[in-house]
Design a protein around this nucleic acid. Structure first.
Lengths: 222, 222
DNA sequence: AATAAATTTTAGACTCATCTAAAATTTATT
DNA sequence: AATAAATTTTAGATGAGTCTAAAATTTATT
């Protein structure tokens, strides 16, 4: 259907289209894929020809319904393989991304549906990212970045917005794991860094880190 | 390390090198991969440059020690994935080959070693083909084609030499499964076809079919 | 509104894997 | 041993994906 490269572009574009109400620009794609704007332009043409994107010269691109379906299917594969790698092969969450980048291009949909069954239809991958179902529906995701919380907020770590192994290992070391409860003790005005209590520890988190930690807020019921 | 295409060529060449004491010819490779002799020549150059093959113009190729190690690693991956697909995802043995052709190119060796552990170090894949271990050692394979057995031989179905789904489905229907016991009742001289008793059934098998059924002979101890 | 800066596209070239058609070499046949 | 047949290699093209450098277009600045 589509080559590995086409799939990678489409996936990157789909992810970027969350930002600017769906419009995605050549330079951003080039940045996200560590390639040149020239290469991106060539590929945009090709994907538009396959009507996976709506593309107008100099005006950016938009993912079409057809493109979105394909992108969600690739994302579904990626995340289900990540679950398999952690649950069955005992990899850590910071190790699975690269392997899943290859496995997501294995074409058989039947395979992935059976994997879904084996894994008991998980709703989230090991990083807390939601797994689209066969029809491309995503379990309601209303996570909020830690960086947006104010002093005295409490919440639960629900996911991450960055998958670099170094970042994930840093979180691990700091006591952040998905499902862990925390409280914002203080937000420093000068650099927006935060003091967080997590378990019995109190830690200091920079704004850059906090932006990439997704949480579900707990609205004190007690 | 090597591209998918290079891996596919190397695997095909390794398989062909079982025949003519290790020497493999351009045309045979082209046939086996359904491509042209010209394309094969190009690729032989490239693989020889990487010292995976020893190649001399017009004289055929031989797989080097290094090439053999790589080929066995690919075959190991292919066959372990086949075991996974049948045992965990409940695919039939005639469905797994194509999917394994893609999965075998997923690069991580760590992944495949952990899969090996999950599957409890199987020695054979669903078709009865031996699975090389991490060091490329293959469990002693002294299977003999059904076509070579004489009247009154008894044996156990041990594997197949052909993986086309149609062939495997035919076997299934006829009662051939790996591990099943049979007896050669009669060999017809004119076309070398055979009468076989298998379970409670008696069936007729053509010579072409019999060539592709591998057996372990039972040397009557009673 | 004119110019500068940033972004995006085009032009042309390179690698990988493929092909067809023609040339070179080896093997088989008379 | 000479010729015919088969096999293999070379030559030259093509498509996918990539790049650098230059041209075109849009956006920002004065």
């Amino acid at each position: 259907m589509a080559t590995h490269t086409e799939e990678n572009y489409l996936k990157a574009i789909y992810h970027l289209s969350g930002e600017n109400n769906g419009l995605v620009y050549t330079n951003d794609i080039a940045g996200s894929l560590s390639t040149t704007a020239a290469s991106v332009t060539d590929m945009l043409r090709k994907l538009a020809d396959k009507s996976l994107l709506k593309y107008e010269r100099y005006k950016g691109v938009r993912v079409t319904r057809k493109g979105e379906k394909l992108a969600l299917n690739i994302i579904r594969k990626h995340r289900l393989w990540e679950v398999f790698l952690t649950e069955y092969l005992k990899f850590r969450w910071d190790e699975v991304h690269t392997m899943a980048e290859e496995l997501e291009h294995v074409s058989s949909d039947e395979l992935i549906d059976r994997l879904d069954t084996l894994l008991k239809y998980p709703k989230f991958d090991p990083h807390g990212d939601p797994i689209p179902d066969v029809n491309g529906n995503i379990a309601g995701k209303n996570f909020v970045a830690l960086s947006l919380l104010i002093t005295n907020s409490t919440g639960v770590v629900a996911g991450v917005a960055e998958h670099a192994p170094e970042f994930l290992q840093y979180l691990e070391k700091s006591g952040f794991k998905i499902g862990v409860r925390f409280k914002v003790l203080e937000v420093h005005a000068f650099d927006h860094s935060m003091e967080i209590s997590i378990g019995k520890k109190q830690i200091h988190i920079s704004h850059d880190i906090a932006k990439n930690i997704l949480t579900r807020q707990l609205h004190d019921k007690n």
